[in-house]
């Protein structure tokens, strides 16, 4: 039986006349780091929204551990062990950094409808929150409102919020988006260290080719909503279609 850990079958999503994701079938192996790359508008974020249940596909399906999770609403996927981060910073801006992470920890617990006991009386949640802040290096900023953090730290917080409930699968949508280039290595090291612990499956959308090539086990290249190529970093680097279609348009668009 060749059921992949996380798998999509003929996934398709239309927005009116536009086909944003067109017949995408991808298999992600357990404990691997699988990257999705492609030029702007290739459908990567839409693909992510379909994976995480934020959007429902027009047709096709998503399987996780052999179960069909296609119609699972977004608030259920994390309870199955799939966590998702956002390309655009998506936080609770006036709440403290601590509270942002604490909410992420609380979500998968059983105390959400304890409505008279203060949050300070749940030591396990507080403990885990402090741990996560330590991992992403935001302990000193715990009391600051999340909206006041510098962009790079907001990206770290974003990562912390999906690490908090300790999911099996991390869907990372351009974790380094908008970061100053000197901050990127720090965040990628963090991702690499999570990867090297070996207990997580990571699906990564990334623009930065160097980053993707060095860190990935497998790469899927998307172009105009379709899968253009898939393989190991070496195979992708040598693929002529990729160089032509992806790298060509990438430099056209990115350097303008």
């Amino acid at each position: 039986m060749s059921t992949a850990f996380l798998e999509t079958k003929h996934l398709r999503r239309e927005f009116g006349a536009l086909v944003a994701v067109d017949d995408v079938s991808v298999q992600v192996a357990e404990h691997s780091l699988h990257s999705i790359i492609g030029p702007n508008g290739a459908g990567k974020t839409t693909f992510f929204n379909l994976l995480s249940g934020t959007l429902a596909p027009t047709s096709g399906s998503v399987f996780f551990r052999g179960e069909d999770i296609t119609s699972l609403p977004v608030y259920r996927t994390i309870h199955r062990g799939i966590g998702r981060s956002y390309q655009i910073t998506n936080l609770f801006p006036t709440l403290s950094v601590f509270e942002n992470v604490r909410l992420a920890v609380q979500a998968t617990g059983r105390d959400n409808f304890r409505f008279l006991t203060p949050v300070t009386k749940f030591p396990d949640v507080l403990q885990r929150t402090s741990e996560v802040l330590e991992i992403v290096g935001l302990t000193d900023d715990a009391a600051r409102p999340a909206g006041q953090l510098p962009h790079g730290d907001q990206r770290k917080l974003e990562l912390g919020m999906i690490l908090a409930p300790d999911p099996d699968v991390l869907l990372l949508d351009e974790p380094t988006a908008g970061m100053a280039s000197n901050q990127v290595p720090e965040l990628m090291e963090l991702i690499a260290s999570i990867r090297s612990q070996g207990s997580k499956t990571i699906v990564l959308v990334e623009h930065n080719m160097n980053v993707v090539m060095s860190v990935s086990d497998r790469i899927t290249v998307m172009h105009q909503g379709q899968v253009l190529a898939e393989g190991t970093p070496g195979e992708i680097a040598d693929d002529e279609r990729v160089q032509e279609a992806y790298l060509g348009t990438l430099y056209d668009e990115e350097d303008s």
Binding site: T54, P73, Y75, R76, I78, H79, R84, Y86, L103, A107
Partner: peptide, 9 residues
């Protein structure tokens, strides 16, 4: 939106 994606219905 974020509350939903954190797992809160």
């Amino acid at each position: 939106e974020r509350a939903l994606s954190l797992g809160y219905n």
